[in-house]
């Protein structure tokens, strides 16, 4: 089954994802695509402890996930793919790997250099550049923290 949700969320596997999106999509697994996390067993264990019972959590580096996307799309059950930042999602979309797909911007908190554009979204130059990369790669970008809330088109956020 094709990956059901590509989401950028700093908090990765957390309540809004497991409850807000999880109840709607009923995932079999969370796939966290993150270079540092992919090499940290103890951090992976911490995230797994917070994953709902019966749902798997897997961790892959960005380049490996991009190469395996066709196979990941064929896994049985529902998959939610998460990156903690926009640049990682933009790297995942290189070489047309995600053309025609949609990326959900769910949670990027304020930090130096970022401007709050939505209650759950703060963007700086790196984030806006990544949004443009995704749009240029044929990926639709929509900001939406929860399934029932109104989405904001990424073309309005790219700057």
């Amino acid at each position: 089954m094709p990956i059901a949700l590509f989401r950028v969320d700093e908090r990765l596997i957390h309540g809004q994802v497991t409850v807000g999106w999880g109840v709607r999509l009923d995932p079999s697994r969370y796939l966290v695509v993150d270079d540092p996390l992919a090499t940290s067993d103890w951090e992976q264990d911490l995230y797994r402890l917070g994953t709902p019972s019966g749902v798997e959590a897997h961790f892959l580096p960005v380049d490996e996930a991009r190469a395996e996307l066709p196979d990941l799309d064929r896994m049985t059950g529902v998959t939610i793919l998460l990156t903690r930042d926009l640049p990682s999602m933009a790297r995942l979309a290189l070489d047309g790997a995600m053309e025609g797909r949609e990326v959900n911007l769910g949670g990027i908190h304020h930090a130096p250099g970022r401007t709050q554009v939505l209650p759950y979204l703060a963007l700086g130059d790196a984030e806006r550049s990544a949004i443009r990369m995704l749009l240029d790669a044929g990926v639709r970008v929509v900001a939406r923290d929860l399934p029932g809330t109104a989405g904001v088109d990424g073309t309005r956020l790219a700057g």
Binding site: R11, H14, G15, L46, Y47, G50, T51
Partner: peptide, 16 residues
């Protein structure tokens, strides 16, 4: 508040 989510994760980090 619960055993999952960012609050639980932060607590686990601090008590590691």
């Amino acid at each position: 508040d619960m055993g999952q989510g960012s609050c639980a994760l932060a607590a686990r980090f601090v008590c590691r």
